Amino acid sequence: MFRNFKMVSKVVFGRGCFSQLGDILEGQRSGKNAVMVFLMDDVFESGPLKDRLPMKAEDLLIWVNVDDEPKTKYVDQLTTQVKKYMVAKHDHLPSGVIGIGGGSTMDLAKAVALMLTNEGSSADYQGWDLIKNPAVYHCAVPTLSGTGAEVSRTTVLTGPEKKLGLNSDHTVFDQIVLDPEMIADAPNPQRFYTGMDCYIHCVESLTGTYLNSFSQAYGEKSIELCREVFLTDTPDADDKLMMASYCGGMSIAYSQVGICHALSYGLAFVLGLHHGIGNSVVFDYLEDYYPEGVREFRKMMERQGIDLPRNLVSGLTDDQMDTMINVALVLEPLWENALGKDWKTIMTRDKIRELYLKM
Protein backbone atom coordinates (compact mmCIF):
# COMPACT_ATOMS: atom_id res chain seq x y z
CA MET A 1 0.00 0.00 0.00
CA PHE A 2 1.45 3.37 -1.05
CA ARG A 3 1.19 6.18 1.45
CA ASN A 4 -1.19 8.97 0.51
CA PHE A 5 0.36 11.75 2.55
CA LYS A 6 -0.69 15.34 2.91
CA MET A 7 1.55 18.22 1.83
CA VAL A 8 1.43 21.91 2.80
CA SER A 9 -1.30 23.25 0.56
CA LYS A 10 -0.03 26.82 0.19
CA VAL A 11 3.55 28.14 0.10
CA VAL A 12 4.89 31.62 -0.52
CA PHE A 13 8.66 32.08 -0.93
CA GLY A 14 10.81 35.14 -1.46
CA ARG A 15 12.65 37.95 0.24
CA GLY A 16 10.15 40.30 1.84
CA CYS A 17 7.16 37.98 1.52
CA PHE A 18 6.52 38.25 5.28
CA SER A 19 4.77 41.51 4.44
CA GLN A 20 2.04 39.47 2.71
CA LEU A 21 1.09 37.62 5.90
CA GLY A 22 -1.76 40.00 6.72
CA ASP A 23 -3.40 39.53 3.33
CA ILE A 24 -2.94 35.75 3.58
CA LEU A 25 -4.60 35.59 7.00
CA GLU A 26 -7.46 37.90 6.04
CA GLY A 27 -8.98 35.18 3.89
CA GLN A 28 -9.03 32.81 6.89
CA ARG A 29 -10.68 35.08 9.43
CA SER A 30 -14.15 33.87 10.33
CA GLY A 31 -16.52 33.81 13.27
CA LYS A 32 -17.78 36.51 15.57
CA ASN A 33 -14.38 37.84 16.58
CA ALA A 34 -12.17 36.29 13.88
CA VAL A 35 -9.30 35.79 16.33
CA MET A 36 -5.84 34.84 15.13
CA VAL A 37 -3.44 33.41 17.71
CA PHE A 38 0.22 34.23 17.17
CA LEU A 39 2.75 31.98 18.93
CA MET A 40 6.09 33.76 18.68
CA ASP A 41 9.53 32.84 20.01
CA ASP A 42 10.22 35.12 22.98
CA VAL A 43 13.69 35.85 21.62
CA PHE A 44 11.93 38.49 19.49
CA GLU A 45 10.10 40.10 22.43
CA SER A 46 12.47 43.05 22.67
CA GLY A 47 13.07 43.45 18.94
CA PRO A 48 11.25 45.19 16.06
CA LEU A 49 9.69 42.08 14.50
CA LYS A 50 6.65 42.16 16.79
CA ASP A 51 5.72 45.56 15.36
CA ARG A 52 5.42 43.99 11.90
CA LEU A 53 2.83 41.42 12.95
CA PRO A 54 -0.49 41.88 11.09
CA MET A 55 -2.48 41.75 14.33
CA LYS A 56 -6.01 43.06 14.77
CA ALA A 57 -7.56 44.25 18.00
CA GLU A 58 -9.06 40.88 18.97
CA ASP A 59 -5.96 38.81 18.13
CA LEU A 60 -3.87 37.05 20.76
CA LEU A 61 -0.07 37.15 20.90
CA ILE A 62 1.63 34.54 23.09
CA TRP A 63 5.37 34.70 23.63
CA VAL A 64 6.61 31.11 23.82
CA ASN A 65 9.84 30.00 25.43
CA VAL A 66 11.83 27.31 23.64
CA ASP A 67 14.93 27.22 25.82
CA ASP A 68 13.85 23.63 26.43
CA GLU A 69 12.53 21.16 23.88
CA PRO A 70 8.71 21.40 23.54
CA LYS A 71 6.90 19.36 26.17
CA THR A 72 3.37 17.98 26.19
CA LYS A 73 2.75 19.79 29.47
CA TYR A 74 3.64 23.12 27.84
CA VAL A 75 1.38 22.39 24.85
CA ASP A 76 -1.50 21.66 27.20
CA GLN A 77 -0.82 24.88 29.10
CA LEU A 78 -0.81 26.95 25.89
CA THR A 79 -3.96 25.26 24.63
CA THR A 80 -5.77 26.05 27.88
CA GLN A 81 -4.64 29.66 27.63
CA VAL A 82 -6.09 29.97 24.13
CA LYS A 83 -9.36 28.26 25.12
CA LYS A 84 -9.84 30.62 28.08
CA TYR A 85 -9.20 33.61 25.83
CA MET A 86 -11.80 32.37 23.33
CA VAL A 87 -14.38 31.80 26.11
CA ALA A 88 -13.89 35.42 27.14
CA LYS A 89 -14.58 36.39 23.52
CA HIS A 90 -17.73 34.24 23.48
CA ASP A 91 -16.37 32.21 20.62
CA HIS A 92 -15.43 28.55 20.39
CA LEU A 93 -12.28 28.42 18.28
CA PRO A 94 -9.84 30.94 16.86
CA SER A 95 -9.68 31.39 13.11
CA GLY A 96 -6.08 30.23 13.10
CA VAL A 97 -2.78 29.66 14.87
CA ILE A 98 0.43 31.16 13.46
CA GLY A 99 3.85 29.96 14.60
CA ILE A 100 6.75 32.38 14.15
CA GLY A 101 10.17 31.04 15.13
CA GLY A 102 12.37 27.99 14.72
CA GLY A 103 11.46 24.32 14.69
CA SER A 104 10.35 24.21 18.34
CA THR A 105 8.03 27.19 17.95
CA MET A 106 6.54 25.73 14.78
CA ASP A 107 6.03 22.40 16.56
CA LEU A 108 4.22 24.19 19.39
CA ALA A 109 1.97 25.97 16.89
CA LYS A 110 1.09 22.69 15.18
CA ALA A 111 0.43 20.99 18.50
CA VAL A 112 -1.81 23.77 19.85
CA ALA A 113 -3.78 23.88 16.58
CA LEU A 114 -4.39 20.14 16.95
CA MET A 115 -5.25 20.16 20.64
CA LEU A 116 -7.85 22.91 20.22
CA THR A 117 -9.99 20.34 18.37
CA ASN A 118 -8.94 17.09 20.09
CA GLU A 119 -9.83 16.34 23.71
CA GLY A 120 -7.40 15.35 26.44
CA SER A 121 -3.68 15.88 26.79
CA SER A 122 -1.26 16.10 23.89
CA ALA A 123 0.58 13.18 25.55
CA ASP A 124 -2.38 10.99 24.58
CA TYR A 125 -1.57 11.49 20.92
CA GLN A 126 2.17 10.78 20.86
CA GLY A 127 2.47 8.21 18.11
CA TRP A 128 1.32 7.62 14.56
CA ASP A 129 -2.13 8.68 13.30
CA LEU A 130 -3.80 8.97 16.72
CA ILE A 131 -5.24 12.43 16.01
CA LYS A 132 -8.95 12.11 15.14
CA ASN A 133 -10.13 15.64 14.32
CA PRO A 134 -8.64 18.19 11.90
CA ALA A 135 -6.75 21.07 13.47
CA VAL A 136 -7.77 24.70 13.20
CA TYR A 137 -6.09 26.58 10.36
CA HIS A 138 -2.38 26.87 11.10
CA CYS A 139 0.42 28.76 9.42
CA ALA A 140 4.20 28.97 9.93
CA VAL A 141 6.84 31.64 9.42
CA PRO A 142 10.29 30.07 10.00
CA THR A 143 13.00 32.27 11.52
CA LEU A 144 15.50 29.38 11.47
CA SER A 145 15.91 26.83 8.71
CA GLY A 146 16.88 23.18 8.82
CA THR A 147 14.42 21.21 10.92
CA GLY A 148 11.87 20.77 8.15
CA ALA A 149 9.15 21.42 10.75
CA GLU A 150 7.49 23.75 8.28
CA VAL A 151 6.59 20.83 5.99
CA SER A 152 6.55 17.75 8.23
CA ARG A 153 3.52 15.78 9.44
CA THR A 154 4.85 15.59 12.98
CA THR A 155 5.25 17.87 15.95
CA VAL A 156 8.00 16.48 18.15
CA LEU A 157 7.14 16.60 21.85
CA THR A 158 8.68 15.32 25.06
CA GLY A 159 6.02 13.70 27.21
CA PRO A 160 6.08 12.23 30.68
CA GLU A 161 7.19 8.83 29.34
CA LYS A 162 8.70 9.39 25.92
CA LYS A 163 9.83 11.81 23.27
CA LEU A 164 7.63 11.17 20.27
CA GLY A 165 5.76 13.26 17.75
CA LEU A 166 2.10 13.78 17.05
CA ASN A 167 2.41 12.16 13.63
CA SER A 168 -0.69 12.87 11.57
CA ASP A 169 -1.87 14.26 8.26
CA HIS A 170 -3.79 16.81 10.34
CA THR A 171 -0.49 18.10 11.73
CA VAL A 172 0.71 19.54 8.41
CA PHE A 173 0.56 23.33 8.13
CA ASP A 174 -2.06 24.84 5.84
CA GLN A 175 0.25 27.69 4.85
CA ILE A 176 3.94 28.49 5.16
CA VAL A 177 5.64 31.84 4.53
CA LEU A 178 9.28 31.32 3.56
CA ASP A 179 11.08 34.66 3.72
CA PRO A 180 14.90 34.31 3.67
CA GLU A 181 15.19 37.71 5.33
CA MET A 182 13.70 36.15 8.46
CA ILE A 183 16.71 33.86 9.00
CA ALA A 184 19.41 36.37 8.06
CA ASP A 185 20.42 37.20 11.63
CA ALA A 186 20.38 33.66 13.02
CA PRO A 187 23.61 33.29 15.06
CA ASN A 188 26.12 30.45 14.97
CA PRO A 189 26.28 27.82 16.35
CA GLN A 190 22.45 27.75 16.37
CA ARG A 191 22.30 28.26 12.61
CA PHE A 192 24.80 25.46 12.07
CA TYR A 193 23.07 22.96 14.35
CA THR A 194 19.68 23.63 12.76
CA GLY A 195 21.23 23.31 9.30
CA MET A 196 22.82 20.02 10.30
CA ASP A 197 19.42 18.66 11.24
CA CYS A 198 18.56 19.14 7.56
CA TYR A 199 21.83 17.63 6.34
CA ILE A 200 21.41 14.58 8.57
CA HIS A 201 17.78 14.18 7.44
CA CYS A 202 19.08 13.80 3.92
CA VAL A 203 21.96 11.44 4.72
CA GLU A 204 19.59 9.16 6.61
CA SER A 205 16.90 9.33 3.94
CA LEU A 206 19.28 8.77 1.02
CA THR A 207 20.96 5.74 2.62
CA GLY A 208 17.81 4.19 4.10
CA THR A 209 15.90 1.08 3.08
CA TYR A 210 12.73 3.18 2.59
CA LEU A 211 14.39 5.21 -0.18
CA ASN A 212 12.35 5.85 -3.33
CA SER A 213 12.62 8.22 -6.27
CA PHE A 214 10.35 10.79 -4.61
CA SER A 215 12.51 10.98 -1.48
CA GLN A 216 15.70 10.75 -3.49
CA ALA A 217 14.83 13.72 -5.72
CA TYR A 218 14.17 16.03 -2.77
CA GLY A 219 17.01 14.60 -0.65
CA GLU A 220 19.66 15.01 -3.33
CA LYS A 221 18.69 18.63 -3.96
CA SER A 222 18.62 19.40 -0.26
CA ILE A 223 22.03 17.90 0.45
CA GLU A 224 23.49 19.76 -2.54
CA LEU A 225 22.19 23.04 -1.11
CA CYS A 226 23.58 22.16 2.35
CA ARG A 227 27.00 21.63 0.81
CA GLU A 228 26.86 25.03 -0.87
CA VAL A 229 25.81 26.75 2.36
CA PHE A 230 28.27 25.08 4.74
CA LEU A 231 31.25 24.26 2.52
CA THR A 232 31.46 27.29 0.20
CA ASP A 233 31.02 31.05 0.26
CA THR A 234 27.84 30.90 -1.77
CA PRO A 235 25.73 33.95 -2.54
CA ASP A 236 22.14 33.87 -1.29
CA ALA A 237 23.08 31.39 1.44
CA ASP A 238 19.92 32.15 3.43
CA ASP A 239 17.69 31.51 0.42
CA LYS A 240 19.46 28.21 -0.23
CA LEU A 241 19.34 27.08 3.39
CA MET A 242 15.62 27.82 3.53
CA MET A 243 15.02 25.72 0.43
CA ALA A 244 17.33 22.96 1.72
CA SER A 245 15.13 22.76 4.82
CA TYR A 246 11.97 22.55 2.71
CA CYS A 247 13.39 19.87 0.42
CA GLY A 248 14.91 17.95 3.34
CA GLY A 249 11.56 17.87 5.09
CA MET A 250 9.89 16.66 1.89
CA SER A 251 12.53 13.95 1.48
CA ILE A 252 11.65 12.29 4.79
CA ALA A 253 7.91 12.79 4.26
CA TYR A 254 7.87 9.76 1.97
CA SER A 255 10.70 7.85 3.66
CA GLN A 256 12.20 8.20 7.15
CA VAL A 257 15.21 9.32 9.14
CA GLY A 258 17.45 6.80 10.89
CA ILE A 259 19.90 5.91 13.64
CA CYS A 260 21.02 9.45 14.45
CA HIS A 261 17.53 10.76 15.07
CA ALA A 262 16.53 7.73 17.12
CA LEU A 263 19.54 8.11 19.42
CA SER A 264 19.19 11.89 19.66
CA TYR A 265 15.62 11.49 20.94
CA GLY A 266 17.03 9.54 23.89
CA LEU A 267 19.63 12.22 24.58
CA ALA A 268 16.99 14.94 24.46
CA PHE A 269 14.61 13.11 26.77
CA VAL A 270 17.17 12.54 29.52
CA LEU A 271 19.55 15.48 29.08
CA GLY A 272 17.22 18.09 27.60
CA LEU A 273 19.56 18.53 24.65
CA HIS A 274 18.11 20.54 21.77
CA HIS A 275 17.37 18.55 18.64
CA GLY A 276 19.97 20.06 16.31
CA ILE A 277 22.77 19.84 18.89
CA GLY A 278 21.74 16.31 19.83
CA ASN A 279 21.76 15.18 16.21
CA SER A 280 25.20 16.67 15.68
CA VAL A 281 26.61 15.05 18.83
CA VAL A 282 25.26 11.63 17.85
CA PHE A 283 26.14 11.82 14.16
CA ASP A 284 29.82 12.38 14.89
CA TYR A 285 29.95 8.83 16.33
CA LEU A 286 28.12 7.07 13.48
CA GLU A 287 30.93 6.69 10.96
CA ASP A 288 30.36 2.91 10.91
CA TYR A 289 26.84 3.49 9.58
CA TYR A 290 27.13 6.71 7.54
CA PRO A 291 30.86 6.90 6.65
CA GLU A 292 30.69 9.44 3.81
CA GLY A 293 28.13 11.61 5.57
CA VAL A 294 30.10 11.76 8.83
CA ARG A 295 33.32 12.66 7.05
CA GLU A 296 31.59 15.49 5.17
CA PHE A 297 29.86 16.61 8.37
CA ARG A 298 33.26 16.95 10.06
CA LYS A 299 34.49 19.11 7.17
CA MET A 300 31.47 21.35 7.66
CA MET A 301 32.16 21.61 11.39
CA GLU A 302 35.77 22.55 10.74
CA ARG A 303 34.89 25.17 8.13
CA GLN A 304 32.22 26.72 10.36
CA GLY A 305 34.42 26.65 13.49
CA ILE A 306 32.11 24.41 15.51
CA ASP A 307 33.22 22.48 18.61
CA LEU A 308 30.75 19.84 19.74
CA PRO A 309 29.96 19.32 23.43
CA ARG A 310 31.64 16.16 24.76
CA ASN A 311 31.35 13.72 27.69
CA LEU A 312 27.63 14.33 27.99
CA VAL A 313 26.74 10.92 29.43
CA SER A 314 29.66 10.53 31.83
CA GLY A 315 27.58 11.24 34.95
CA LEU A 316 24.43 9.33 34.06
CA THR A 317 23.07 6.57 36.26
CA ASP A 318 22.21 3.11 34.95
CA ASP A 319 18.52 4.01 35.19
CA GLN A 320 19.03 7.14 33.09
CA MET A 321 20.97 5.15 30.50
CA ASP A 322 18.18 2.58 30.36
CA THR A 323 15.65 5.37 29.86
CA MET A 324 17.64 6.77 26.93
CA ILE A 325 17.78 3.33 25.34
CA ASN A 326 14.05 2.78 25.86
CA VAL A 327 13.18 6.13 24.27
CA ALA A 328 15.38 5.37 21.25
CA LEU A 329 13.96 1.87 20.77
CA VAL A 330 10.36 3.12 20.60
CA LEU A 331 11.15 4.65 17.20
CA GLU A 332 10.94 1.41 15.26
CA PRO A 333 10.37 2.91 11.77
CA LEU A 334 13.64 4.84 12.08
CA TRP A 335 15.63 1.70 12.92
CA GLU A 336 13.97 -0.28 10.14
CA ASN A 337 14.74 2.45 7.61
CA ALA A 338 18.39 2.45 8.64
CA LEU A 339 19.03 -1.25 9.10
CA GLY A 340 16.20 -3.18 7.45
CA LYS A 341 13.46 -5.42 8.80
CA ASP A 342 15.93 -7.48 10.87
CA TRP A 343 17.21 -4.40 12.69
CA LYS A 344 16.49 -5.89 16.14
CA THR A 345 19.16 -8.52 15.59
CA ILE A 346 21.68 -5.80 14.66
CA MET A 347 20.93 -2.94 17.06
CA THR A 348 20.73 -4.55 20.48
CA ARG A 349 20.39 -2.72 23.78
CA ASP A 350 24.09 -3.40 24.45
CA LYS A 351 25.03 -1.88 21.09
CA ILE A 352 22.95 1.24 21.76
CA ARG A 353 24.52 1.55 25.21
CA GLU A 354 27.97 1.28 23.64
CA LEU A 355 27.16 4.11 21.24
CA TYR A 356 25.79 6.33 24.00
CA LEU A 357 28.86 5.76 26.17
CA LYS A 358 31.02 7.31 23.44
CA MET A 359 29.13 10.57 23.82
Results as ranks from 00 to 15, higher is better:
G249L: 10
H201M: 06
D107T: 02
M7F: 14
D169P: 04
V37T: 08
G99F: 06
V203I: 14
H261P: 02
L61T: 05
W335R: 07
F192L: 08
T154F: 07
V8Q: 04
I252F: 15
T194W: 00
G27M: 04
P48W: 01
C139I: 06
G340Y: 13
S222E: 01
F5S: 12
R153W: 06
D41H: 05
D233H: 13
L211I: 15
R153L: 07
R227P: 00
K110V: 03
K110P: 00
A135E: 01
V97G: 06
G47A: 08
V12Y: 04
L157A: 04
M86V: 05
L144E: 00
A111V: 02
S222R: 03
L108M: 10
C17Y: 07
E296K: 08
L308M: 07
D59C: 05
L211Q: 10
L271F: 08
Y356W: 12
G249H: 08
G96L: 03
K358P: 09
I98R: 01
F44I: 10
G165R: 05
I277L: 13
P142N: 04
F230R: 01
D91C: 11
R310V: 11
G248S: 07
A253L: 15
F38Y: 15
G195R: 03
P142F: 01
D236M: 11
I100N: 01
V294E: 08
G272V: 12
M321A: 06
R353L: 15
G272P: 06
L329H: 05
Q81N: 11
C247N: 13
K344R: 15
M250H: 02
H92R: 12
K32Q: 14
V87T: 12
I24Y: 13
I306H: 11
L271K: 15
D318L: 10
S245W: 05
T234L: 03
S168M: 05
L273D: 09
F13M: 06
Y193G: 09
Q304P: 02
L334N: 02
A135S: 15
L206N: 08
F44W: 10
H261I: 10
G14Q: 12
